[in-house]
Computed example of a mutant assay.
Amino acid sequence: MKAGTDLAQIGSLVGDPARANMLAALMGGTALTASELALEAGVTLPTASAHLAKLGEGGLVSVARQGRHRYYALADHSVAAMLENIMGVAATLGPKRVLPGPRDKAMREARVCYDHLAGEMGVAMLDSFVGRGLIRVDGEQAEMSEAGASYFAGLGIDLDAMGRKRRPMCRTCLDWSVRRSHLAGGLGAAMLERIQAKGWARREKDSRVVRFTPMGRREFEMMLRG
């Protein structure tokens, strides 16, 4: 089988408008039912179920049963990264606007990308970590420096547990609204967890928007200044 065959299969799964809307809805990192995804896609429940079956067979979504319900989620972080990159290409090659990415100012500023912080504030966080020598970036590759390991451990992040997982500890993710990279990987997820645990910000209900409190914004900016 030629490699292009696999690419064509994934492209056909993502390229259907209804399935694309379902996958975009799952980018918030929350598992959703078929009924909820049908609403997101604007299709009937039977049609949504058929689409979800194809996405499951293609390895793009996973399903968990809880009681009478089935909850669907993106299969893993690599699928989320692929979708974020596709959104970036679409924003670059699609109809030109003065500002790329989402029209909603709150979505542009801070949002969840699967399980890490994206948008202007996510990009600013990576810029800060790189500028302070905590993370080294070479193209799409990123690694934590010794100074970074000490700093993040001091924040209470369990780097040993993170290192035992198959997921990369540090990874860059092209931010489709800012057209620059934000921090992904295990560390990106851990930083978003910390931001929310500190009460600096919270997820808006039924949205990918991350809303910072005035105090949280000040604390976040102080963290970036080091």
Rank of each mutant, 00 (worst) to 15 (best):
A3P: 14
A3D: 14
T5R: 15
L13T: 00
V14N: 03
G15A: 00
G15F: 01
N21D: 11
N21C: 05
L23N: 03
A25K: 00
A25L: 00
M27Q: 06
M27G: 01
T30W: 01
A31F: 02
A31Q: 14
L32N: 11
L32G: 10
T33S: 12
S35L: 12
A38L: 04
E40D: 13
V43C: 10
V43P: 08
T44W: 07
T44M: 09
P46L: 04
A50C: 12
G56W: 12
G58K: 02
G59I: 01
V61A: 01
V61K: 00
A64G: 09
H69E: 14
H69F: 15
Y71W: 13
D76W: 12
D76P: 13
H77I: 09
V79Q: 04
I86G: 07
I86V: 08
M87V: 14
G88Q: 05
A90T: 13
A91R: 05
T92N: 11
L93Y: 15
K96V: 15
R97N: 01
L99N: 08
D104R: 02
R111C: 08
R111W: 11
R111H: 14
C113S: 13
L117G: 11
A118C: 14
E120D: 09
M121V: 05
M121G: 07
G122V: 11
A124C: 06
D127F: 00
S128H: 07
F129V: 10
G131V: 11
R132D: 08
G133L: 05
L134S: 06
L134I: 02
L134K: 11
R136A: 15
D138M: 05
D138E: 12
E143S: 14
E143Y: 13
M144I: 13
E146C: 04
A147H: 12
A149V: 08
S150Q: 08
S150W: 10
S150M: 07
Y151F: 10
F152N: 09
A153T: 15
I157C: 09
M162Y: 03
P168E: 10
P168A: 11
M169Y: 02
C170D: 06
R171G: 04
L174A: 01
D175E: 07
W176I: 14
V178E: 15
R179C: 15
R180Y: 03
R180W: 04
R180D: 05
G185L: 01
G186D: 07
L187G: 00
A189G: 10
A190Q: 06
L192F: 04
A197W: 00
K198P: 09
D206R: 14
D206I: 04
S207P: 08
V210F: 00
R211Y: 13
F212I: 04
F220C: 10
M222A: 08
M223S: 12
